[in-house]
């Protein structure tokens, strides 16, 4: 493409980024609006943040959502890592095609379907084996683990694919047990992928409305459910304040997570290079 064409494409990119960020920026801006009418500027104020702090329903829902998100993110990382290791390190086993299909389907499955099907499973399981008793936090966590682990497995897989399997093979040749190889070699290398998988699972869980609404029971209202029931009635300024807080937390989390990943990646590269140099020295010494 010639220079003018490329210039136009870059203009389009910046316009696209403005399109992506403008709604969020205006949302934050209007959360400091004193007026009850969201679109009319009535002066700077933090009153909606104050009102939020006294809204017990919102606070309870936020706590419940955080609790569910932390537990299900941990579960999703464990399950997703197993699935990712399976798909990238075991090229042949019975039922592999079905397995990879089962893992990638949740990525695109409309949530109304996965939510409804999980609910029907839980209801039937309770009838048949008596577990899980009723529906609420536990059923939401199981649903979130199932959906998020699929994302974690994609992240872990792409990390493992780019990693040379010969390091692991070398350790095995030197007599290390598979568990030890995993703990000492594979795990440190995929650690950045696990961090980003955890963060992604956490945000997917905190954010989830549709499938949670299907599988929840009486008394377990998560934050998105409370927001949704308010938003359905129209725009209101305290939701703007709540949204601002959520956006702020997520931005800080993602940026620090990204910073950690970049840093650990650099450290790993440095260690690799140093180990390589040591090996070279030893080799020449031996000769």
């Amino acid at each position: 493409m010639n220079a003018r064409g490329l210039g136009l494409v870059f203009l389009w990119l910046w316009a696209g980024l403005v399109f992506l960020y403008l709604p969020i920026v205006t949302l934050i801006f209007y959360s400091f609006n004193d007026s009850k009418l969201v679109a009319v500027w009535g002066g700077f104020s933090t009153r909606w943040y104050g009102e939020l702090m006294h809204n017990g329903q919102v606070l309870d829902a936020a706590l419940l959502s955080l609790e569910i998100a932390v537990i299900s993110a941990c579960g999703a990382v464990v399950l997703g890592t197993l699935a990712g290791v399976t798909l990238s390190r075991f090229p042949v086993f019975r039922g592999r095609v079905m397995f990879s299909g089962l893992i990638s389907a949740p990525l695109v499955m409309p949530e109304v379907i996965s939510g409804l099907s999980m609910l029907l499973l839980f209801v039937s399981m309770e009838q048949l084996v008596g577990w899980p008793k009723g529906r609420g936090m536990l059923t939401i966590i199981l649903t979130h683990i199932t959906i998020s682990a699929a994302y974690v497995s994609v992240i872990v897989q792409s990390r493992l694919v780019s990693l040379d399997a010969s390091i692991e093979e070398a350790a095995m040749d030197l007599g290390a047990r598979p568990t030890r190889v995993f703990m000492r070699i594979t795990l440190p290398i995929i650690a950045p992928a696990l961090v980003s998988g955890w963060l992604l699972s956490f945000t997917l869980s905190v954010d989830d409305l549709v499938s949670s609404s299907f599988v929840t029971g009486p008394g377990a209202s998560t934050l998105p459910m409370v927001i949704f029931s308010k938003v359905r009635l129209g725009v209101s300024p305290d939701i703007n304040a709540l949204a601002t807080i959520i956006v702020l937390i997520v931005t800080v989390g993602v940026i620090s997570g990204g910073w950690y990943m970049v840093r650990s990646e650099k450290r790993r590269e440095l260690e690799e290079r140093m180990a390589y140099a040591e090996g070279e020295k030893e080799n020449t010494g031996m000769v």
Partner: peptide, 9 residues
Amino acid sequence: WTSFLIRVY
């Protein structure tokens, strides 16, 4: 990464 519901809102 920021809430889907909030972006629609």
